[in-house]
Design a protein around this nucleic acid. Structure first.
Lengths: 208, 208, 208, 208
DNA sequence: CATGAATGAGTGTTCATTCAT
DNA sequence: TATGAATGAACACTCATTCAT
């Protein structure tokens, strides 16, 4: 829609752009291709086509397919407290659980799921990236936990095993994500039931 | 000629076997190949080699790569109350939660994880298989839930949202599985913590 | 002429032939391609075309370009007491030198030169082949030397440094070969002069 | 971007130099590349890298790869009474043969051999250059021959077919060069034998 | 049932070269 | 003069699949 790529105008040959622009174009195309098809089935030709440039130019900006994939995952994971399992512990004390549940389940968009799928399928290709992400995640988790602890101390939440391990309290999100990845729309009834129970259990164990 | 095939048996050419035997050989080989490499990176040649027969003979028994993959997943999922999320609700009343936790976490072997990964990555290729499996799973879940209900009625377990939705109660298993798929061995500390909290919460909410 | 390769009949698809036949066809094509262009500039596609088969089929019969090249050189050198520096010490005692000179210079055909050039340019790619050939050549040289020694003992040739080292006596052949490789037809006057002097010197030092 | 260039100087961008300097830099790099890899396998990118400038700048100074190669050979052959078969007929009368033999065999350095190999493999690409060189060589040969003739007239050397055709007398050098090109170090025993016989024969036929 | 031979369509990657600045 | 960005054409090689036996 907004982008005029594909095969519209056969004119305008050899448009010269800044490397960051080209890299962005390529990574955008790569995201679509990789998350649709996985690493192996993705094709450098198709990525170049989608990015609206010659295959050879792709190789000017990325050393090879692996390099491109690594860069892509790197950048996806860098901007993703939101994309995957965003347990953003917002401020307000009342309705905390409801807001938590709603926002986290809303984050499971098709795009986020596609990226999670890619991660699961191909993480082994980019161990360095994953390790970096793991460490970053650990830090984020600690911060989230600290936020929860503060709420507990303030009497806004009840203490207990769930409050002590907020990552565990949100684990059903992963179940739901995987259910959708595997079952698609057919998972929705299951997902709704899960979400309802999740809300109920969190209220039960966290509401003061 | 130029390529060396068959590493194992240099003798025994053109052994004629029953179709079911051959199909079994092929599917065994296919399981290894697909779960190691995913659908696209898997190679029919390598599968044939591993199965100890010619590529052409593979095509006598399976129409094509997709057909083979579908058949494989079909058969994997048919024998898999065990393979994936086996929440076998054994009989004994005492220590129920401990047994449940230990047996389900023990089921997350590397092989089971490889198959789960395959499922997540490639389920979209075989929607018919997945639908069938979903229905079968629904039945199995109802049975498990009925088992739990009976235990609750018998006073062996406490009622409540978790007992009413045992699938939800086991959702953290999926989190653990995914963590291992993505992080490999680096996930173990997280996994241990998860398992411990899981046990604690189940005791808290299910022990009478 | 005799072979109907190239692009004559678009019919007759999938002709199935014995592997030795195909390998022969490929090596014939490869000889032309490699000796015309050298290893790097030679193209597998063109070799396949010239051999009248698909590129993929070439790879059924040879593992890769290097394998093909090695096989080609191997087979060329195996049948080449004639091709390169054939110092066949024929039987007759009279006119020995004249026959020797004429036959060896006649062996420097354009084809033989093309192969020599290939050898010089690309020998480093196939050290194993070259070592094998070196050993075989050593044996052949000893036999030739023994033949000469017998002639000397029989009084048919005069002894001396040349008779003791017949390889050296024929070294000017290599000069002539290289001159032709570098200068082409323009080398002919030089070649004629060389040949004449060569004959003169051999008569001078070998005739009894 | 994706590719790392320039291993040496990370600084000093866009240094502007006189054309002759740049051409020299390029030809130096080209000599290494071409004599290591031959014409086809040589890469303009690598030459540019080695010359410490951009690929595009190479094309400012040379029309294309062929042009560059032609220029390179031109310049190599221009300064090469030394490089290839330098039969420098030094002045002193005594030990003439020994000096001749030693100096000419010493000239067969690995570098000289690499250039000879290049010449043999790729001479056909630059017929004009070769023709020019041939003519120049003819002149040089005549001069060498005249020098020999003077020595003969002075009684410092014996007359005869070898003295009349000094080019022929040095032909075994080419044999030795080719042997080394093909066999590498394994040629050394052969080379030593050749050199010894060569010396012996020259003494025999030239010493007065 | 079983196979070796064969292929068209594709893969990722590199090349010599040109354009815009 | 000098360069980074860009490209069409080619590269060696592999793939899933089919045919002839």
């Amino acid at each position: 829609m907004g982008n005029e790529n594909q095969s519209a105008q056969p004119t305008a040959k050899r448009t010269r752009l800044a490397p960051e622009v080209r890299r962005k174009q390529i990574l955008d195309a790569a995201l679509v291709e990789f998350s649709n098809l996985g690493f192996s089935a993705a094709s450098m030709s198709r990525i170049a086509d989608r990015a609206g440039m010659s295959k050879a130019n792709v190789y000017v900006h990325f050393k090879n397919k692996d390099d491109m994939f690594e860069t892509l995952l790197q950048s996806l994971l860098a901007h993703s407290d939101n994309n995957w399992a965003e347990l953003q512990t917002a401020s307000c004390p009342v309705d905390f659980v409801d807001r938590l549940v709603d926002s986290t389940y809303a984050a499971l968009t098709p795009e986020a799921l596609a990226i999670m799928r890619l991660l699961i399928a191909e993480a082994h290709r980019v161990p360095a990236v994953m390790e970096k992400w793991r460490v970053a995640n650990q830090v984020a988790q600690r911060e989230r936990q600290a936020g929860i602890n503060r709420l507990v101390d303030a009497g806004a939440l009840k203490g207990g095993p769930l409050a002590n391990h907020i990552e565990f309290a949100m684990a059903p999100l992963v179940y739901v994500a995987v259910a959708r990845m595997i079952m698609g729309d057919a998972a929705e009834p299951d997902v709704d039931a899960m979400k309802a129970t999740h809300r109920k259990v969190l209220h039960l164990l966290l509401d003061p």
